[in-house]
Nucleic acid binder design. Structure first.
Lengths: 171, 171
DNA sequence: GCCAGATAGTTAAACATTAAACTAATTTCA
DNA sequence: TGAAATTAGTTTAATGTTTAACTATCTGGC
């Protein structure tokens, strides 16, 4: 390819080559990096129990909503994920014997979701060592700093002015 | 299934039904939620340019390493992702005409990666409006709070005591 | 000079995720 | 009552991610 008249190795005339730094950019980058660090610690930890982090999240939410007969729909809203995603994840968790779907006889479109005995037992087994893991992830910060971090993130979430925001998945 | 002797609706005897709250747990949850909020704002934003957030990240890193002839290997290390992941993502970006792979004649195992003119032009088009987007994500925090948030997250990352940690993907 | 081991990249299989299109059941209302 | 609209869930296609297994190439010691 002959691009002598528009060399691909040269910057485009008059435009800068790097995006400038700013407090907002640094904070966004820090959040993404912080999330990555948390993920890298939690993945092998949950793998010990045969779970992925999202699977643990699903089990936790189902447990929290127990007694309220959650449907897959309600689960998706609580989890902040799309509806098809719930279908897929429950399929795997059901196959693993941790979760059960029951048809609602009153409305045959709906299915209630609940933990099996095995699913509940697994959650409790994890809880016995879970605080140690969380503390090791947060070992770099004092309790006061952990509170401050939590407060700042909550404030950021509350104040984000979603210019091009989608509140939640729509499917 | 007859489970009369071990009812699935009862909590396991002697174990608690909820994992207790703690500063560390709140902070981890806040990081995950904060990341989700950022993602939900950035995805539709990048979609305007036909990109996903990871694709933008790849283009940014390739641009930053330009002049150093980065290989796919070096890209994976900078991006903190696995090597096969780079293969897959570059495949799509190359197909979109934003990136180019060139064989290293000195070592025919390696491939150098560089932005095409079109890739560089797209980055610069995004940069022109990028600060507005970042500021809208961080609209809830003052500049000083953004600095503090960045500092706390960096400290958290540096201090995490990876009990069961994997520094980076191994493949 | 040649073969064992290391290195760069790819392919395959699994999981998570979304949007879009589809099926089935219920509700609305004319 | 019966057709239209709504709602719950699934399936499909696409993207991103990992680990494991594979191919091709290079390097080092004999």
């Amino acid at each position: 390819m002959n691009r002598a008249a528009c060399s691909d190795a040269e910057p485009v005339a008059g435009l800068k080559d790097e995006f400038p730094h700013s407090a907002a950019r640094a904070a966004v980058v820090a959040i993404v990096r912080g999330y990555g660090a948390v993920q890298r610690q939690m993945e092998p930890y949950f793998a010990q129990f045969g779970l992925t982090p999202p699977q643990f999240q699903v089990l936790t939410i189902i447990n929290r909503l127990r007694g309220r007969q959650p449907t897959q729909r309600q689960l998706a809203l609580e989890l902040y994920v799309s509806f098809p995603n719930v279908t897929v994840m429950l399929g795997r968790l059901e196959q693993a014997g941790l979760v059960r779907r029951r048809n609602n006889p009153k409305d045959r479109r709906e299915k209630f979701v609940e933990l099996t005995h095995r699913g509940r037992a697994l959650l409790q087994r994890i809880w016995q060592v879970h605080q140690v893991q969380l503390d090791s992830v947060m070992a770099g910060l004092s309790d006061a700093e952990q509170f401050k971090l939590t407060r700042l993130l909550d404030k950021m979430i509350a104040g984000a002015t979603g210019l091009a925001t989608r509140d939640r998945p729509v499917s």
